[in-house]
Design a protein around this nucleic acid. Structure first.
Length: 431
RNA sequence: UCCUCGGUAGCUCAAUCGGCAGAGCGGGUGGCUGUUAACCACUAGGCUGGGGGUUCAAGUCCCUCCCGAGGAGCCA
């Protein structure tokens, strides 16, 4: 007997096959039961009739949701079944009958309950759709870098240097060496790698011990970072435009069905092609003040500010050249305006806000050392990083893109917590 | 850490001015041969987050603690 996956049913129309999966939903009407089977490849309606099945029909009719089954039957084209094909069952074997009522019901649930049952929530069609989009997005990210001659450099998770300030780092005991930190960025290591490989990227989890509690924050999230030798600020922005357009267009083309099931209108995403809008930090401030914001020069844009700016544009917008004092120590000082750095954040439209932070890096040894001291960091710990400016230092730039924020934007979600299989949040590390 | 909102049946939520604790879904029992979160009938299910207070009377008002959500700060 041919065993097959639901996605392959059209190829077996009229034939008898075996499916293995779970009872996603069930309805019965006296002598006939409709079992909605999920097998990881799709959904299919299986028709179980009393006259065909005999004694086991009574058990099948009452089978608890999410029980696992092996069903054998004839594949029949049927528009009323999801996927367009249904199975007329001739034999049922119960692999495992759910021991208790499945906690995730057919009606709505609240976020607390769903997050406590994340291990079971992942079986629902909405979560399946999001995970498929995530898989596709990640694949196109890797593909883009591969096609453009970037080499993957896996950066360490344990670090003794940091890219941001130490207050937001998780520390762990590291044998006799004292404290080590969980990585916040692989950037500094990528900078070391460009001298051998030119263009590199890393992709992995990153950890922020910030007591953030918003729809845009996770404690553990995935970030893809790229770094390229001889890329100045403008070339960096062109790369980001090309990259973001590529991953968005390819993902929405491949996952149109899933995005539709999530209720995402992809028309706004189709506009995500180069060039993106570019405004300076100072211009952003002027706009914000005109709109009534009380933001002051020398502070970062808040969530409301980002929402206001993005509402004015139908495509992603770069905010360039921030004040030096609000950005990280490694960013290159602006040659004409010493109070600024050559950097840009990329804000996604439709109110989603920052998805990329990037900059040209300081390539001058003395200026970098000075910046490290100004930020009260220990120059000895950054010895290796300073070394990079001693042997053939070159202009170079890079950026980091947050996977969950980008996915949340593409899927049109209200919160990043649904974009990662097991979200880590300030008061939640279970399951 | 701060601000705002919330916690009532397994789940999602009602409960008017402080006056008998309710519904839908899910569970159980029965019915139905084409259902699409199926439907119909019956049924079980409660320390109203914990503690204290006011009152003849508290889910409702006050104090306090716990838990959650959204936001601020910070960031991708």
């Amino acid at each position: 007997m041919t065993e097959c996956y639901i996605k392959d049913l059209p190829r077996h129309a009229g034939k008898e096959v075996v499916l293995k999966g779970w009872v996603s939903n069930r309805r019965s009407s006296g002598k006939v039961s409709f079992l909605l089977i999920r097998d990881g490849s799709g959904l299919c309606q299986a028709i179980a009739e009393r006259e065909v099945l005999g004694d086991i029909y009574q058990e099948v009719k009452k089978i608890p949701l999410e029980s696992s089954l092996e069903v054998q039957g004839t594949v029949v084209e049927e528009s009323r079944s999801p996927g367009g094909y249904e199975l007329h069952v001739t034999r049922v074997e119960i692999i495992h009958k759910s021991q208790e009522e499945f906690p995730i019901g057919k009606k709505e649930h609240g976020p607390d309950f769903l997050l406590n049952n994340r291990h079971l929530w992942l079986r629902s069609s909405r979560q399946i759709a999001i995970m498929r989009v995530r898989d596709t997005l990640v694949r196109h990210i890797r593909e883009y870098f591969h096609k453009n001659d970037f080499t993957l450099i896996d950066s360490p998770i344990f670090t003794t240097t940091c890219g941001e300030d130490t207050s937001s780092l998780f520390s762990v005991d590291y044998f006799d060496l004292g404290k080590a930190f969980l990585s916040q960025t692989g950037q500094l290591y990528l900078e070391a790698a460009i001298f051998g490989l030119g263009k590199v990227y890393c992709f992995g989890p990153t950890f922020r011990a910030e007591r953030s509690k918003t729809r845009r924050h996770l404690i553990e999230f995935w970030m893809v970072e790229a770094e390229a030798a001889f890329y100045d600020h403008d070339r960096n922005l062109a790369l980001q435009e090309d990259f973001v357009s590529y991953i968005v267009q390819n993902t929405i083309a491949e996952r149109a069905e899933e995005l539709a099931s999530l209720g995402r209108d992809i028309e706004p995403l189709k506009k995500v092609v180069p060039p993106f809008y570019r405004i300076s930090y100072d211009e952003a401030l002027t706009i914000l003040k005109e709109k009534g914001s009380d933001i002051e020069w020398g502070t970062d844009l808040g969530g409301d500010d980002e929402t206001l700016i993005t509402s004015l544009y139908d495509k992603p917008v770069f905010i360039e050249n921030y004040p030096r004092k609000v950005k990280a120590f490694y960013m290159k000082q602006h040659p004409d305006k010493p109070d600024y750095v050559k950097c840009a954040d990329l804000l996604a439209p439709e109110g989603y806000g920052e998805i990329i932070g990037g900059s040209e890096r300081e390539d001058d040894y003395d200026k970098l050392l000075q910046a490290i001291r100004e930020n009260n960091l220990d120059p000895e710990r950054y010895g290796w990083y300073l070394d990079l400016r001693k042997y053939g230092s070159v202009p170079h730039s890079g950026f980091g893109l947050g996977i969950e924020r980008t996915l949340s934007w593409i899927c049109g979600l209200k919160h990043v917590r649904e974009t990662i299989p097991f979200p880590r949040m300030i008061y939640r590390a279970y399951p």
